[in-house]
Design a protein around this nucleic acid. Structure first.
Length: 537
RNA sequence: GCCUCGUUCGUCUAGUGGCCAAGGACGCCGCCCUUUCAAGGCGGAGAUCACGGGUUCGACUCCCGUACGAGGUACCA
């Protein structure tokens, strides 16, 4: 039910996305915080370019935590000139959400993260959907059975369930009791003859230790007796992550496995499978998870936006890109604004930390503002227009405002708002008074601090007359005489200007008054002042 | 419960034995600028480096415990 609601939600968003954004190039060369000297290309082992993969499962909408982890792999692949592979781990058919891959692909496109091998583009090591590699996993599962590293388990779900209950009652760790590992040949044959369904389980060594060499955490040692015989092939013939990912990583020549640190606990199992198959281990990097404000793992239910929500709010992909790179990774003690090129140049795996980081929306907001301010005005307009033109209900200007917007006019408006914007999405709300015909505000707002109705009325009328007498409608022409007027009337500039501000905008906060009036236009400004006078009279 | 990981300002983090009576950034507060709101400038509060033991001439940095947090403990990934 929930997933259904989600599905509907983002299908709608998806349409909007296509409408709003044709991904254009944006590699403006601004913000160069990184000095050029520190760069040497990676010391790649001769000839062996790194191959990294991101392997999401399409069981839902990936949130930005997933993107962060993908970003690390992508960045490193690009840094080294290696290969970045996208592999879809869709072995859990029941949980697969239709459209999830599309959603992911769109998100990657939005963030400008490309991949060298994967869905659609293919590659030499395909297919890149695990459901299409079913036979491969089965082959290796059988190989493992043959070599005695795995076995068929005929236990029913009911038996397993009872087992777990019994163990719980005795306060024992829930663990498969390896019943089928010790079946006699006769029993096995009987089960086969009876046509019993079976799963394949890995036969973990009963004693000894497995040490996981992790490039971030160092060596992590597990007692083999603590690890149970996990299922690696389901009764429906599909592999589980434990088998599929290892087979694929090996067959696809993955050199660096970056994955969330929630995988640490199953790493020993994976290592045993590598060993059993006689394969060389890749380098493991268990990267810290991105946590929510409550320090819990990020989930979409919960405090974790997906890329589409960020996009919808008007966050810039390049800002999100920059921001995400800084969760769990840092360059040094002060640099944090990076262009994507700089990030690629500077990103190394050894600077990934071990502790989980919390996603801080406030800092993202700030960084987005920085990127907006750095952006040339023309670009700001191009990119903001779609947000303003979207339907009112989606956050655009009131529907009464005719689309498409006049570009020249919008440009003048946005120029004033440029350094005030934190997101593209808030533009509509903030500038709507420039576009609507009718202003709605409480008349009392006209009366400034220390003023009364009569004085406000006088101020407004005198301002009207003065403004009307001006030859040119330019802010530098308006300001000096208006200041004089305020002085003459014994008002503070803010008292006079404040009243006019409300009169022309219906707001208490706008860009500088006279520039605002200039952009608004003479007709419109004067009509609004007139209207305010009527209201007070 | 068991296994594992993690722990530097509220948050992101710098720090790999002396350069740290811990630096930067967001946020917060104040001042300046100022017609409002921003932006910008300046300044401030904010971390006994989770705690306790070691090791060492010297520990935020190494070791061991403890606490707390997180992850795992599925025919999920």
């Amino acid at each position: 039910m929930k997933s259904c609601a989600y599905y509907t939600y983002w299908m709608v968003m998806l349409q909007w996305v296509k409408f709003v954004c044709d991904e254009e190039e944006r590699d403006s060369a601004f913000m160069t915080q990184v000095e050029n000297q520190l760069e040497k290309m990676p010391t790649g082992e001769a000839g062996h370019k790194p191959r990294l993969r991101f392997a999401p499962s399409p069981t839902g909408l990936m949130h930005i935590g997933g993107f962060r982890t993908m970003l690390f792999s992508w960045l490193y692949a690009r840094h080294t000139g290696g290969t970045f592979i996208l592999r879809i781990e869709d072995t859990d058919v029941a949980r697969t959400v239709e459209g999830a891959v599309d959603f992911l692909l769109h998100g990657m496109r939005w963030m400008d993260l490309d991949y060298d091998e994967g869905p659609i583009v293919g590659g030499q090591y395909g297919p890149y959907y695990q459901t299409q590699r079913k036979a491969i996993y089965q082959q290796y599962a059988h190989q493992l059975i043959e070599s005695g590293h795995a076995y068929r388990c005929y236990c029913t779900a009911e038996r397993l369930e009872q087992l777990r209950k019994a163990q719980a009652a005795q306060k024992l760790p829930p663990r498969y009791d390896r019943n089928c590992r010790y079946l006699t040949e006769e029993q096995r044959a009987a089960n086969e003859a009876a046509g019993l369904k079976y799963v394949v389980r890995i036969a973990m060594p009963l004693e000894g230790e497995t040490v996981v060499h992790d490039e971030i955490h160092g060596d992590i040692t597990f007692k083999n007796s603590d690890i149970d015989d996990a299922v690696i092939l389901k009764s429906d013939g599909f592999a589980l992550y434990h088998l599929a990912s290892i087979v694929d990583d090996h067959l696809m020549g993955i050199t660096h496995v970056l994955r969330g640190d929630e995988w640490i606990s199953s790493a020993p199992r994976h290592i045993q499978i590598y060993k059993a198959l006689g394969w060389e281990l890749p380098l493991f990097y268990h990267v810290p998870t991105v946590l929510g404000k409550d320090k819990k793992k990020l989930s979409k239910r919960h405090n974790a936006p997906s890329w589409i929500e960020l996009k919808e709010k008007g966050f810039l992909p390049e800002a999100v890109f920059n921001f995400l790179a800084l969760i769990g990774w840092s360059y040094d003690d002060k640099t944090e604004l990076f262009t994507r090129e700089e990030l690629i140049r500077v990103f190394t795996l050894d600077r990934i930390g071990a502790a989980g980081g919390i996603y801080d929306p406030d800092k993202l907001l700030w960084m987005n503002g920085v990127y907006i301010r750095q952006m040339p005005l023309e670009e700001l307009i191009e990119r903001t227009l779609p947000y303003m033109e979207r339907p009112e209900i989606a956050g655009g200007l009131p529907d009464s405002v005719k689309r498409p917007l006049d570009k020249a006019y919008t440009s003048r408006v946005l120029h004033l708002e440029h350094e005030r914007l934190k997101t593209l999405g808030e533009a509509a709300e903030v500038v709507s008074f420039f576009f609507v015909d009718e202003l709605h505000y409480d008349t009392a707002m006209l009366v400034q601090k220390g003023m009364d109705i009569d004085r406000t009325l006088v101020g407004l009328m005198r301002a009207r007359d003065l403004l009307n007498s001006l030859e040119e409608w330019k802010h530098e022409v308006m300001e000096p005489p208006m200041r004089e007027l305020a002085a003459e009337l014994g008002m503070k500039p803010g008292q006079l200007f404040g009243a006019i501000r409300v009169a022309i905008s219906g707001r208490t906060a706008t860009p500088p008054l006279f520039e605002t009036m200039e952009a608004l236009g003479r007709e419109r400004s004067m009509a609004r002042i007139e209207k305010a006078i009527e209201r007070l009279a």
